[in-house]
Amino acid sequence: MSTLIEAKDLNLFYTDFHALKNVNLTIPEKAVTAFIGPSGCGKSTLLRTLNRMNDMIAGTRIEGKLTISGTDIYSQEVDVETLRKKVGMVFQQPNPFPKSIYDNIAYGPRLHGIKSKQKLDEIVETSLKSAALWNEVKDHLKRSALSISGGQQQRLCIARALAVNPDILLMDEATSALDPISTLKIEELVQDLRDKYTIVMVTHNMHQAARVSNQTVFFLNGEVVEYDDTEKLFSNPEDQRTEDYISGRFG
């Protein structure tokens, strides 16, 4: 698998707080990479640097290099908006817009200039199918997105992200607000999507990382302690701290 994302000596500060310390990491293309670690370890922070959502927090400072397909995404030449079109994101809480199911999916494509009704219909259908939601909502696309269940809403948010045709999909603890059955559905969905997208997910749930990811990265206190093939990291970690964490001795 070839490398898509690479961090070199990446440091991030929230005003005085040193949130990411000398992160060196590669993330492979068309695979699932999971970030694990205890709360406040920097895993969500790193995820949010990948689509520059941290830019909106005042006092954020970044040093080092973060490249996607070889381009430094923090260089002057990069439009944040174009970057975010390529790097989609799904959040911890489902956050559908207070609009219809159809308009939620069509929001992104419309933003990027697609006006043709036929084209939009097509995108809505394929996105909902990719997110395994089409069969459940196809008969009431005009209904409010807030009328469906939390698990469906989260899959709607995934479909919304897919509708702008990203290369990378970031999932920030996307199942932590959901019930076990909805969680399972989303995990299955992630498995289906990894042939076409590079997926980076933050999870609190180690078992989830073990179940769905190809590569796992373990964070502690803003540092990347270790990253490796998921199977290897969980069965035979190199660092003692990783071993302690995955065997449940802390965290």
């Binding site: 970057l83 079109k85 956050n95 817009f97 702008v164």
Partner: peptide, 17 residues
């Protein structure tokens, strides 16, 4: 809610949009 804005920003919307 901020989460709505985040959702739109994550799709590549500008501040004005």
């Amino acid at each position: 809610p901020r989460s709505l804005r985040d959702g739109a920003y994550a799709l590549g919307a500008t501040r004005f949009e």
